[in-house]
Amino acid sequence: MTRNESDDPLSSLAPFLRVKPELQDFCRFGGTWVSPHEASGGAQFHIVTRGHCVFEVTGHGPVKLGAGDTLLLPHGDAHVVCSVSTDGTIRSIVTEFRNAIRTKLTPGVACDTELVCGVLRGEAASEQALIAALPNFVVLRSTRLPLAERLHMLAICISDELDSNETGSTIIATNLATALFVMMLREHLKEAPPASGLLALLTHRSTSHAVLAMLREPARDWTLDLLAKTSAASRATLVRSFRKLAGLAPLAFLTELRLGFARQRLMTTNDPICVIAADVGYQSEGALSRALLRRYGVRPSKLRLGRSG
């Protein structure tokens, strides 16, 4: 039986999950090695295609990864990936380039660990909101071989398309990266169903349609009656569900969404503040400025100046 969109939140989310892929590294390591990764502006991922390694990030204990496991860092936090073995001298890592893709090697020692690494960048504010709703890192343990094979295949296909430089390669790679991210998100939701927040709202029928409508049209003059009609629920049911899953009433959640979108655009674009205000549902630059000050304690100009700091 085919599931319709109302029963499948991830299908409904598809328009908000388009990401720009940047496949960065093929890592082929052996012996004892340490590979640090700086913070980035996108969701970083590592797919272990052979062997084992250890992942470390500040504030969390070490996590061991094996072949077929996938690590996703939605917020692009700085981290370190290193060998399981700590015996012997730490091997130097040599970088070679094939077009825009780096190959990292530990010369002079047999390779026993391979990783495919990259970044998924969400370009729209709605994508940023969804990514921000994920935890600091997600580890997908591939105990089922087909999943490992599919993730590996997608990573290699993305690499091949970006490397080919053929007509249409960019859009093909983007769609493959979107599929990769949706698969990661699906497996995460299976393993750790969200109890609260944006993802919880999106996975419950009573609230998902209202949230999707807000994501599609944040500037619309939404009322509680209109949101209830969109959700095919009563006002009381909608308010009760939002408070249970997000700790906010629907219109308060809309305000959070609008200000989050505005903050993201101020920090990542040069769009005029008056344009951003209109796009997220504020009638003037001053109204947006006052709302941002109340919510974040900072004016729009300060957010924009802070981009390079």
Rank of each mutant, 00 (worst) to 15 (best):
D7M: 15
D8R: 12
F16D: 06
F16A: 01
K20P: 00
Q24T: 14
F26S: 08
R28D: 13
V34K: 13
H37P: 01
S40V: 04
G42S: 11
G42Q: 10
G42F: 01
A43G: 09
G51K: 11
H52T: 14
C53M: 08
F55G: 00
T58K: 13
T58P: 00
P62D: 03
D69H: 02
P74N: 07
H79N: 00
C82T: 08
S83N: 09
V84D: 05
S85T: 15
D87P: 01
I90L: 02
I93H: 01
N99E: 10
N99H: 08
T103F: 08
L105R: 01
T106R: 09
T106W: 03
A110C: 03
C111S: 04
L115N: 00
V116L: 05
C117R: 06
L120D: 02
L120H: 01
G122C: 12
E123Q: 15
A124M: 12
S126W: 11
Q128Y: 10
L130A: 13
A132V: 10
L134T: 03
A148K: 05
E149L: 00
R150C: 04
L151T: 00
H152D: 01
M153C: 06
M153E: 12
S159Q: 12
N165K: 10
N165V: 11
T174C: 11
T174D: 12
N175F: 06
A177E: 02
A177N: 04
M183Y: 00
E191L: 02
P193E: 08
P194L: 07
A195I: 08
S208C: 14
L212R: 13
M214P: 10
L215E: 10
R216P: 03
P218M: 15
R220Q: 06
D221L: 07
L227Y: 05
T230F: 02
S231I: 10
S234W: 05
R235C: 07
R235D: 08
A236G: 09
R240Y: 00
S241P: 09
S241Y: 14
P250C: 08
A252Q: 04
E256I: 12
R258G: 03
G260V: 12
F261Q: 14
R263C: 08
Q264Y: 11
D271A: 15
I273G: 05
I273F: 07
A277V: 15
A277P: 04
V280N: 04
Y282I: 11
Q283R: 06
A287N: 05
L288D: 09
L288F: 09
R290S: 11
A291P: 11
A291E: 05
L292H: 13
R295G: 02
Y296C: 05
R299V: 14
R299D: 05
L303Y: 08
R304P: 14
L305V: 14
